[in-house]
Design a protein around this nucleic acid. Structure first.
Lengths: 162, 162
DNA sequence: GTCATATTTGTATATTTATTCATTTATAAT
DNA sequence: ATTATAAATGAATAAATATACAAATATGAC
């Protein structure tokens, strides 16, 4: 049953979602002013509660600026129906402070893509052949840190369902 | 060029990501205390800056509680080397005394071919994946020399197109 | 309508997070 | 090494956001 029969509140929540999805909102004060412009007014306190209710949170845009965003937009998982890249891995070893990942033939680039997309700064880059990936850590990053990192990427991968 | 050469900072960033991914962090103060527990200490101000750098933001978990979380699959801005941009090249960095060149998907081998054909002594060889090129300098060749070299190749490249 | 109860809201304030500025530390050039 | 330049940091503080509590408003039963 719908708990939100209060019209004022209901339409305010709708307006907030609309504003957040369309505009680049950087603070609650800013959103407040935008909403006032449309005749819908409330206080920052109410906005704070509404945003929590909606799951709208302040994150960062691509340039590192603040931006309020809808819950779906935060964890953008555009890629991946497959999501079982880690199963293609047959072995891992270290040589010259670089990690070598072995996969079933043809799977290297798919696994490497997964690693690249994780955007981990510990990893300067990967180069994938057909069944082997060369993972190049940044300077001063320990092998353990990279292993941690790779482990995490594969873990996240298997958890990724939404 | 690699921006993360500071050991203390680099490992702190790693720890932060680890903490955020493993624990349910609800505030910076909380994270601060957790980190202190491992011997890594800094102030809330530094943490605030680090979190922005990492794109880690405070959102809501399924129950509406606060929780710091890693960024979605937002593209990280590659550290670019000014003046070396050729159309397909999206970024350049150094790791383990090797140059890594990032390109748009599918362009790596084309760019690598260009480099190979220049026949520069400084460059022992290249290995290209789909969107990443590993440039291996000869022994005793400085990074600067290789950059000079690559810059020259790209300059020639862009002149060809005009 | 009245009454009882639950929800919503604003004010004031507490808490949390971001930023300024001075200092220190690292990196680069000579 | 020495000096210059840039990056990182902490302390203090500003700015932004959350919450306690009282008042107002809505909802449901009669």
């Amino acid at each position: 049953m719908n708990k939100y029969t209060n019209m004022t509140r209901a339409s305010r929540l709708i307006l907030i979602e609309k504003m957040v999805s369309e505009k680049n909102i950087t603070s609650q004060e800013e959103l407040l002013r935008l909403m006032e412009g449309t005749g819908m007014k409330c206080t920052q306190a109410t906005l704070s509660r509404d945003l929590r209710q909606l799951g709208v949170s302040r994150g960062f845009d691509s340039k590192g600026g603040y931006r309020y965003m809808l819950p779906g937009k935060t964890a953008k998982t555009a890629d991946t129906l497959p999501g079982h890249e880690s199963e293609a891995v047959t072995g891992i070893t270290w040589a010259r402070d670089m990690m070598l990942i072995y996969t079933y033939p043809g799977f290297a680039s798919a696994v490497a893509l997964k690693i690249d997309r994780a955007g981990r700064y510990e990893i300067a880059g990967t180069v994938a052949g057909d069944d082997t990936i060369l993972v190049i850590p940044r300077d001063n990053i320990s092998n353990e840190a990279v292993e941690e990192c790779i482990s995490l990427i594969f873990k996240n991968n298997s958890q990724e369902k939404q």
